[in-house]
């Protein structure tokens, strides 16, 4: 089973970027997330896995307060970014989201040119003083998202005209352009074909050098391939959280083992 190969990487003790303690999420009366504790390390890819509806995406959206846009959603517990509670009343979610960027399940480029898509974040956050600086940020972000060579000749073409895989890499470039500290990815490959998926996975591995990446995925193979830490969610509970190699080879919890071996999911 080549797919199940676990990346052999040295996992050193890294600084903890985000810390979640006793997080509860309610959708109206529905208790969607129960008592979740997770530490997100810097310069690490953390994967959230679990069957559909287990709450992994919901929890991901708590990390940059995207759930604020849903009226009925309520979050309790504590989530810290570098020691600061992101649900504190003083925190402006706008500032938070500049530090914790997000890439979505379906590629969602804005109906603008490729250039404007990438420049959108830097513009609203005022990251560039001049056009030249903005050009530089755009180019760097596109290079980082490994799409520069494909689009450098048509930066003014609409972003919606790209293929699915290119669109998703464009969205990653767009998220990278604001130089976030944490990058959240919600099943970024589920709408892509295998080749595009491989490209994005490769990209995620490179992004780890600069950001802390949290990825929600349906595919255990993907989690095994790209992540160093894995959290397994089941029915709103965090069942197990630890080194990816351990979770996939020697899980503590029988539920995790059932899922890994394909008995639940």
């Amino acid at each position: 089973m080549n797919d199940m190969r676990v990346t052999e990487r040295t996992v050193t003790d890294k600084q903890i970027k985000m810390k979640a303690r006793k997080v509860q999420v309610f959708y109206g009366d529905n208790h969607a997330i129960k008592d979740v504790d997770v530490d997100i390390e810097d310069k690490t890819v953390t994967a959230f896995i679990g069957p559909s509806g287990c709450g992994k995406s919901t929890f991901l959206r708590c990390l940059n307060r995207m759930n604020d846009t849903i009226d009925v959603c309520r979050v309790e517990g504590e989530i810290d970014l570098e020691g600061e509670d992101i649900y504190d009343a003083k925190v402006d979610p706008v500032q938070l989201r500049a530090k914790v960027g997000m890439v979505f399940q379906k590629p969602n480029p804005f109906p603008k040119s490729i250039y404007d898509n990438v420049a959108y974040g830097p513009r609203i956050h005022g990251l560039a003083r001049s056009k030249a600086e903005l050009d530089e940020i755009v180019e760097k972000s596109l290079r980082r998202a490994a799409i520069w060579n494909e689009v450098k000749d048509r930066l003014q073409a609409p972003g919606t005209g790209l293929s699915g895989g290119q669109q998703q890499r464009l969205c990653i470039a767009r998220a990278v352009a604001t130089s976030p500290e944490v990058l959240l990815m919600d099943e970024p490959c589920s709408a892509l074909d295998p080749i595009a998926t491989a490209q994005v996975e490769e990209l995620i591995d490179e992004l780890r050098e600069r950001f802390s990446v949290v990825i929600v995925t349906h595919s255990m193979q993907q989690a095994a391939r790209v992540s160093q830490k894995t959290a397994f969610f089941h029915l709103g509970n965090l069942v197990e959280f630890g080194e990816t190699s351990k979770i996939f080879t020697n899980p503590d919890d029988p539920r995790t083992e059932s899922y890994i071996t394909g008995r639940i999911g």
Binding site: E84, K90, V94, H125, A128, S179
Partner: peptide, 29 residues
């Protein structure tokens, strides 16, 4: 390609989430 994003960007971000920087204030207004 140098890693210059954080260094050369003219942003003066509030390192703390608790403090609103000038730009965010303006944006919120």
């Amino acid at each position: 390609m140098t890693d210059a994003t954080a260094g050369s960007a003219p942003r003066t971000p509030a390192r703390s989430l608790f403090a609103e920087d000038a730009r965010t204030k303006r944006r919120n207004r």
